[in-house]
Each structure stands twice: as C-alpha cells, then as structure tokens.
Computed example of a mutant assay.
Amino acid sequence: MGLSSPAQFQGTLTSKLKEQFDAGLLAGQALHADFTMAQPLARYTQADHEIWRALYDQQAAMLPGRACDTFLQGLETLGMARDHVPDFAELNERLMRATGWQVVAVPGLVPDEVFFDHLANRRFPASWWMRTPAQMDYLQEPDCFHDVFGHVPMLINPVFADYMQAYGRGGLKAQKLGALDMLARLYWYTVEFGLIRTHAGLRIYGAGIVSSKSESIYALDDARPNRLGFDLRRIMRTHYRIDTFQKTYFVIDSFDQLFDATRPDFTPLYAELRDQREFAAEAIEDGDRVLHQGTGQEPALS
C-alpha cells in the first residue's frame, strides 16, 4: 500500500530495501522505474513456504461464516496455492480472464503516485517477501500474504475491481489537490478494514482483517470497537491508528453502494471537508448510523 506520509514512506522503503540488499535478496534483481520486479521465485525458502501454508490453512479454516461470499468465491476462483507461495504469473492467468487485473511484484511500499498509477491501470502491487515466524498474525508493513491472500480474491469481483481502478485514478487527482489524507482514510476503512452487511449478518471484506486471525475474530465478535454505517464524508474526516486493532469499523450494505458513493468527482468534496473538524478513531458523532457502540476499552494487538 502506498498511503503513508512521504517521510514515513522514505524511511520504510529505505529500511526494507536495505534489509533485502543486506540479505542478498536483491542480487541480480532489476527494480524498474515503476518499482516492479520479477517475482524472485527462487528466493523463497522452505520457511517462507511453511509460513504461507500455515497462514493459508489458518485463515481458510476460519473465514467461512466470517468473510463475505465475494471474498470466498474469489479465493476459490483463483485456485491459489495452499502449500507454497503462489506464482504471480499463474494467478494472473485467472485474474486477467475475470476482470483484466494483474498482480505485479514490488519490494514493499511504493511511492503514492506509483501506487495510484498501478491501480488506475488495473495492476495490483504486491510485496514479494514473506513475514517471519514472529510476525505470524500482525505486521505493520504488508507482506506477500497480506497483499495476495488478503487483496487479490476481491479483484475477481467486477464491481470491486472497478472500484479499485477508480480509487487509483482518484488518487492521482487527490495528490494534485493536497487531499491524500482524506482519500487514504477511505482506503483504510474500506479496502483494508471494511465490513459488509449481508442477509446472514456482518461479514468481512477488508484485506487487513481477512489476513489476520485475531482481527477476523475481533472485527465481528468483540464488544470494544464501534461499527458504524458507511458514510463517505464521515470516513474522510476520521483518523485511524496502525498500532492497535481498529476502534471503529464502517459497514457497507453492498459493493454497489460503495462504488456509487465514490463515483462522483471528489474535487468539491475535498473543498467542503478541508476546514471541517476531524474525528478521533474511537469517536461516536451525532448523525452516525450506529450498528454497535463500542465499550471504549483500548484494543491491543495480540
């Protein structure tokens, strides 16, 4: 994901590239101007494949009844490898046929304009490297499991695939208007940590939840977070934190609702919201459609 501040991005990218360089993982690898690279399949260790298998088995077992049908159907359609890190080229054969998207390998976070340009051209930039055993259920920077298992199944759905492309196009415009903070919140509270209301109850579609065992449970079952009805303006004014589980989840009624709400030109919306009060991540405000008011207790990553 390319939504950190310039200073955060430069620090994270420099650290990740140095880490990969020091480990010899970038030797012989060409990093292109758009930050893509050939997926270094030969670099994956047995430990990498074992971590992928453990995470895949864990999430595949627990997500039925928690993840939305769209995600589960996308995972099945992709036929994603269970016992080893997937070959992006094999995923792309199915993904391209379904919605014209493809996965491209990157070394980690990429600059905002690069990230948005990839999305606008139906390319999803996925970190190629795998987390360590100590990071099995949480890490701040997205790895291959988060990006591929968490994000790619949703790109099988035509409406969500179009939403992601529109988001990329909107990001390029938001940069010019100085509104990336507002647009980043939309990504955070939908693509990364979104919930959807279905006839069977609340379900998960956000990649940050479906790729985490503990947050898959917390997002639906825990009494601590707020669960609020989707409101575009409210989301764009709401801060988020990356050091705890979410204090608030926003719930859509359908992917059509999400796409329709974000279809118009955001230029006047940015101007309208620029000088308005912003909200803390845990806030409940007048006018909120409250599906569940949280207890206010501090969540903690575990």
Results as ranks from 00 to 15, higher is better:
Q10P: 05
F21W: 14
G28R: 08
A33W: 10
Q39S: 10
P40M: 13
H49K: 10
A61P: 05
A61S: 13
G65H: 04
A67T: 03
C68S: 04
T70Y: 05
L78R: 00
V85K: 01
E90M: 09
R94S: 08
T99N: 03
W101V: 04
Q102N: 10
V106N: 01
E113H: 15
E113Y: 14
L119A: 07
W128A: 02
W129R: 05
R131Q: 14
P133R: 14
M136K: 14
F149Y: 11
G150I: 08
M154D: 02
I156V: 10
P158K: 03
Q165A: 12
Q175G: 14
A179G: 07
A179L: 06
W188R: 04
E192A: 04
I196E: 00
A200P: 00
Y205T: 03
I209E: 02
S211K: 07
S214G: 10
L220Y: 07
N226V: 13
R227F: 03
G229L: 08
M236N: 05
T238C: 06
T238H: 01
R241N: 09
D243Y: 09
F245I: 14
K247N: 08
D253L: 06
D260E: 11
R263T: 09
P268N: 11
P268D: 13
A271V: 08
Q276P: 04
R277V: 12
D286Y: 11
G287Q: 13
G287W: 12
R289K: 10
E298D: 15
